[in-house]
């Protein structure tokens, strides 16, 4: 199985704070990996490093075999230019906790911004594809609406469609349901579940343990900036072996 995303001995510091401690993780094509753990454990930081919104201070992250943010020259890693980094980011979709839709653009324009203006793909084709994506997340009727006219759950579904419109190789979800009212969580999770079943490679940082159990191929438990345990949902959630994982699971369930 080929790795789409690979983190190898990744280190990250915020000043003196050691946010990621020698983190290694490999995500195969079509795999759904859920990352759980207490807040401040480095889950989101790992995602943000993988999407190059944060730089790393050691180790390597590769996306589809390509080193993220650097090119190798002998035994040195040379930083890529802003433009090259931007090009690499196109392969990695990101869904944020607070949606981050562009409020001055309509729903359809939010989807078209990347493929048409950045990737310079054909407008008519992109329009068709984007409408199909909106159909898929159940929001085709909202194409002309502005984000502030939508509920939180609808906004997050648009954000997922926006990420998909880039045809990414992997999508990272950073606590996609944490900013939602409880009754809106289900609609977003069901879109994500459908996406997982369609074979999209996904890494999901979440507190929705039931979702992890049902959808994840593997569950990663992080604490204190390190990966403590990795395993199947069965081994991690139903019958956790590691005592720290067991503690966490019993606290959140």
């Amino acid at each position: 199985m080929r790795s789409i995303l690979q983190a190898i001995h990744v280190q990250k510091y915020y000043g003196a704070f050691h946010a990621l401690k020698d983190v290694s993780l490999s995500v195969a094509r079509g795999e759904v990996v859920c990352i759980i753990g207490p807040s401040g454990s480095g889950k989101s930081t790992l995602l943000r490093c993988a999407s190059q919104l944060e730089s790393i201070d050691g180790g390597v992250i590769t996306v589809d075999g390509e080193i993220a943010g650097f090119h190798q020259s002998g035994d040195r890693l040379m930083p890529l230019s802003d433009l090259q980094v931007a090009r690499q980011r196109q392969n990695v979709g990101m869904v944020f906790q607070r949606f981050n839709l562009f409020p001055h653009r309509s729903v359809l324009e939010n989807l078209l911004e990347g493929p048409v203006r950045v990737q310079k793909r054909d407008t008519t084709e992109c329009r068709k594809e984007s409408m199909a994506l909106l159909e898929r997340v159940g929001l085709a009727t909202k194409a002309a609406a502005y984000p502030n006219e939508l509920s939180g759950g609808q906004q997050q579904r648009v954000a997922i469609a926006r990420a998909l419109a880039m045809r990414p190789k992997i999508i990272l979800f950073d606590e996609p349901t944490s900013a939602l009212d409880p009754e809106l969580v289900g609609e977003v999770l069901s879109v994500m579940k459908e996406l997982a079943q369609s074979g999209m490679t996904m890494v999901v940082v979440t507190h929705e343990i039931a979702f992890c159990r049902e959808v994840a191929d593997r569950v990663v438990f992080m604490d204190g900036g390190a990966i403590i345990a990795v395993g199947s949902p069965e081994d991690m959630i139903v019958r956790p072996q590691n005592p720290r994982v067991a503690n966490f699971i019993s606290a959140v369930l």
Partner: peptide
């Protein structure tokens, strides 16, 4: 800040993100 990050996540360079996403807002 999330606007800048969202713009970058769809492959925009910083300058482009400032000009097309951040400045209009």
């Amino acid at each position: 800040r999330g606007q800048m990050e969202a713009a970058q996540s769809i492959g925009m360079t910083k300058l482009r993100a400032v000009l097309t996403i951040v400045l209009p807002q």
